[in-house]
């Protein structure tokens, strides 16, 4: 495989990964999530919220 072919394949992979990531993020935003999995996990994590007191 030539270096140019490799570059095209790598670029296509990057675009595909970016596209899927953005699509999934947008879908979650549409569902009303904050779009940030880190924050949502933290929210549901009992040690991090004041809700644990309830």
């Amino acid at each position: 495989m030539s270096s140019q072919q490799q570059e095209w394949i790598a670029l296509a992979a990057v675009i595909l990964i970016a596209g899927i990531s953005i699509f999934r993020w947008w879908q979650r935003r549409k569902r009303g999530d904050s779009g940030c999995s880190h924050c949502e996990k933290s929210c549901s994590s009992p040690e991090t919220t004041s809700r644990k007191l309830d």
């Binding site: 929210c43 040690e47 991090t48 004041s50 809700r51």
Partner: peptide
């Protein structure tokens, strides 16, 4: 409590200020 929560993440901490 919100301040303590923000040692994990500020987002739930800020939501926790509702109390």
């Amino acid at each position: 409590v919100p301040m303590l929560s923000s040692f994990a993440c500020a987002v739930p901490a800020i939501m926790g200020t509702r109390v």
